[in-house]
Nucleic acid binder design. Structure first.
Lengths: 349, 349
DNA sequence: ACCATTTTTTGGAGCGCTCCAAGAATTTTA
DNA sequence: TAAAATTCTTGGAGCGCTCCAAAAAATGGT
């Protein structure tokens, strides 16, 4: 690949002049400019290499998005929540004219990815572990972490998942439900895990603040109706697991109300219900989480704990773009009642 | 920001040694290593700056995605088609461990964006104009252009939109439809444009191969049933225009079948139909285009000209990642008949 | 024709890093 | 204990560019 200097030599001018031809053409005499351009063409020089410029200037003009947990970016793009989040981030990037880098990295390459990412700041998806945070801090770039409060020095944005979970249960108990099942998230690869009541004590806390907080909210809501979460089957599946709905119906057939951690999971259940001829909400009520656009389009339209995912993504991007003093933002949630929930009826299954 | 040299000076070693401490720690004596690490910590040195490394090595390890036409990346993320396309691209990026840069650029900054993008290759969304192509070629990076054949030297991937359009019309005429409306795409900002039959001759070709090809397919399909596209109202709206459905029903009330250019547009029509109490497919049949996941979830599930959008995105990414000899790929489409189309009935509107 | 301006062009400095051949220090061997 | 072998450390070269002060060339006025 030819360089500025090569072109300069060929055209009989200095590399500074060649640089000017490409960056401030008005500074160089038309005939000379032409000569340089001809030389560049002849050499197949495609303009100043951004690498050199970059080293000189130091700004990448890009922010990086690191997928939640150990997920790949394609997994983010697959989930309704992830898509809306990225959409929100991209909105802020559009406004700022910034590139959005979806940074990849498997478990073992994540740290290297962060170390090498050509970005001016980071958004870390939820469930970022401490190692990841340290990696980012090391680079002294502005960053924000989603769905986990990492202390007062660190930008974070999370929703009030606890209240959302409580509200979901209250809605259902208010409708008269007494038999629940919870579809939770498995954060490691593998088949669904089923925690049945009475079985050896299961850990309520999975170690992921995002999920634990919601489980705790469910517990609280149930307790308010004199129900114990200990009596509720909890199924954990990785997001997008197509068998999730089937497992829930198979293992918790007596449940009249199913609580989930995401719209995506709830959609799985709705799909499986159609497949089995189970009427929602006639036989079973289902509540989603996130309030993504998809939740309004399901059949029936879904009751869900809604948050402003797009707004969250946008705010996150703004925070790293503006690089203000660290703050911890907690966003509200709102239970949106649609048609996937109703009072329990005689069970005909 | 301290540099390797600064740390070296502080620790009393050369910058080469500091580099080794960070990149090949096994090469440096433990006690020295520790000393250097201490100095780095004291100075707040966050590891070697990727800019320097980049200049030395020269690989960005990223591919760039340039949104179609003059759209912003948030607009891509908003459309069902765009999301699936990006998902496909991200799939290939995951496999290759590459970063996916969603490159931004308004009309006037697009060229600069391409010039400066820190990527090893480009995917240009459809409707890329010649200027954009030239900009990318100048950088001598591998690239692929979507939905427009730019000649034998240029990688391109497109679907057989013409056949898809013909199939859609044949399906509808086979069902007995004689009164059509076409919802086409306006590629410039602005309100819907309505071309009514008989009005001053309207250009069938909008100058965007993607759209023109489909319009031509519609024309062919209609001709096969002794119908002329000249008698069909054509409405052009920008993607995502919420009033699109309303305009179609207002301006083409006699149509019993509506052809569209995307699922997204078709969804708009379905939504408006619900709003107006128009039964689909009882009163009106609607055909989408693209066959995105969303099209299967509408009410009623949509008949659509399906393509493998994810596969297309993935193939595109592979082509730039693998940098093979240029080729022009034409992908097949398939009419997926679902429940948004049926024979025309007595019109009760 | 000469000097003062103005317009163009130049090339050194430096951005921060990694590579690598060579030098220095340490350990092993005879 | 000296030479040989091994392990560590060094600093020059170079990646490609932009900035900028200064030199060179062109222009204008008298």
């Amino acid at each position: 690949m030819p360089t500025l200097a090569d072109v300069g030599k060929a055209a009989g001018v200095s590399r500074g002049t060649v640089s000017n031809v490409f960056n401030r053409p008005e500074l160089v005499r038309p005939e000379l400019r032409e000569r340089v351009e001809a030389a560049a063409r002849a050499l197949g020089f495609g303009g100043p290499d951004p690498k050199g410029r970059l080293l000189r200037h130091g700004k990448f003009n890009a922010i990086g998005f690191m997928p939640p947990g150990a997920y790949a970016i394609s997994e983010v793009m697959r989930s309704p929540y992830g898509r809306e989040l990225v959409l929100g981030v991209s909105l802020a990037c559009d406004e700022a004219g910034t590139t959005l880098s979806l940074v990849n990295g498997t478990d073992d390459t994540r740290f290297a990815s962060i170390r090498d990412a050509l970005v001016d700041g980071f958004i870390l998806g939820h469930s970022a572990d401490i190692g990841l945070i340290i990696s980012v801090q090391r680079r002294r770039l502005p960053f924000v972490i989603l769905e986990s409060d990492a202390g007062p020095d660190i930008n974070s944005i999370k929703i009030d998942g606890w209240s959302g979970a409580v509200a979901a249960v209250r809605h259902l108990t208010g409708l008269g439900h007494r038999h629940f099942a919870i579809l939770s998230v498995r954060r490691t690869p593998g088949p669904p895990i089923v925690h049945m009541p009475g079985q050896a004590t299961r850990p309520l806390l999975a170690g992921f603040p995002l999920d634990d907080e919601r489980l705790d909210g469910f517990k609280q809501g149930l307790a308010e109706a004199n129900l114990s979460i200990e009596d509720v089957p909890i199924i954990e599946t990785i997001p997008g697991e197509p068998s999730a709905g089937a497992v829930v119906f198979d293992r918790a057939p007596e449940a009249t109300a199913i609580l989930t951690m995401s719209d995506w999971q709830a959609i799985t259940i709705l799909d499986e219900a159609v497949r089995r001829g189970i009427d929602v909400p006639g036989h079973v009520s289902v509540v989603g989480f996130d309030g993504t656009a998809e939740s309004a389009r399901t059949t029936p339209p879904m009751t869900t704990v809604a948050q402003d995912v797009i707004g969250k993504g946008r705010l996150a991007a703004r925070m790293v773009l503006d690089n203000e003093a660290p703050r911890q933002v907690v966003l509200p949630v709102e239970l949106v009642v649609r048609a996937s929930t109703a009072g329990p009826r005689a069970k005909v299954r």
